[in-house]
Amino acid sequence: MNQKKLIIAAYFLRAVLMSLNNEQLKSAHNWEKAVYTEVEWDKNRLVWIPKNKEANEAKIQEIRDTN
């Protein structure tokens, strides 16, 4: 898949994630490994990484704290 398609897929997935509440996110498999904040493409590792790791960790903690 080329980079343009990956970017489109990432924006689509972000839109889907933004429409889910924390309980729904928490019910997903591997939800703690997801990135919930803005991302950038790491060309060396071929993965999306959070631009702000602290903000992403804060969102993961917020989801963890959801009953």
Results as ranks from 00 to 15, higher is better:
Q61N: 14
M1L: 04
E32S: 15
K33P: 01
N44I: 08
I49V: 15
E54V: 12
M1V: 07
K51E: 13
N21L: 01
K53H: 09
E54W: 06
E40Q: 14
R45Y: 07
N52F: 10
K51S: 11
Y36S: 00
Y36C: 04
A9Y: 06
D65H: 11
I63P: 02
L6K: 13
A9S: 11
L13P: 02
E23S: 13
L46P: 01
V16T: 06
Y36Q: 02
L17Q: 04
A58G: 10
E40I: 07
L6N: 10
K26E: 07
E23Y: 07
R64D: 12
K5H: 04
N21T: 04
I49R: 14
D65L: 14
K4P: 03
M1T: 06
A15F: 07
N44K: 15
Q24W: 01
R45A: 12
I8L: 06
S19H: 07
Q24P: 00
R14H: 12
M1R: 00
V47P: 02
Y11T: 05
I60N: 01
E62Y: 11
F12P: 01
H29F: 09
E40N: 10
R45L: 13
N30G: 08
I49L: 15
A34F: 08
A58E: 15
E32Y: 14
P50S: 09
N21V: 02
A55F: 00
L13D: 02
E57S: 15
K26V: 07
K43F: 05
L6Q: 13
I7H: 12
A58R: 13
V47R: 08
L13V: 03
T66A: 14
T66G: 06
E32N: 15
V39F: 04
A10F: 00
F12A: 08
L13E: 06
S19G: 08
E32A: 14
L6T: 01
Y36P: 01
V39S: 00
N30Y: 08
